[in-house]
């Protein structure tokens, strides 16, 4: 095991969230396809998504997209701007903070109606 620093963990998470989002995307295309078969089939499926465990997974998905996107911005900055690579540590901190600053309140808004009716 290599004890890499923040860059390595951010990279691992970037891969995991990417694969996770892609897997979800396949599922999502399949479920939206049902729209073509009429209201009954589609609304039937949505009953599934309204359950609390799925609502939590929804929040996790939002987190995955936010993380992958924000880390992606950091990578793009490093690719095209030399100064960004010099300030790697600061950029990492900004990325992590920005992620939590958006994700946690989003969780509040998304999960409050589910668990506190």
């Amino acid at each position: 095991m290599y004890r890499g620093q923040s860059g390595m963990w951010l990279w691992i998470l970037h891969r995991l969230t990417g694969v996770g989002i892609l897997g979800f995307l396949f599922l999502h295309i399949a479920d939206t396809y049902l729209v073509g078969f009429g209201a009954d089939y589609y609304n039937e499926l949505l009953f599934l998504y309204k359950n609390p465990p799925f609502r939590v997974l929804e929040w996790v998905l939002v987190g995955a997209v936010l993380y992958h996107g924000f880390n992606g911005i950091r990578l793009i900055l490093m690719d095209f701007w030399d100064k960004a690579v010099d300030h790697h540590k600061t950029l990492v901190q900004i990325t992590v903070v920005a992620f939590f600053v958006v994700w946690l309140p989003a969780g509040f808004f998304m999960l409050k109606p589910v668990f506190f009716k």
């Binding site: 390595m8 490093m78 690719d79």
Partner: peptide
């Protein structure tokens, strides 16, 4: 290169390895 940055952290001569790789890609 996946911009993991382990290389720059590890270099005992403090060479900005990641920066060099990015410059070549650009």
């Amino acid at each position: 290169c996946r911009t993991v940055y382990n290389c720059t952290d590890a270099c005992p001569r403090n060479i900005p390895v990641t920066k060099a790789i990015e410059q070549i890609r650009r």
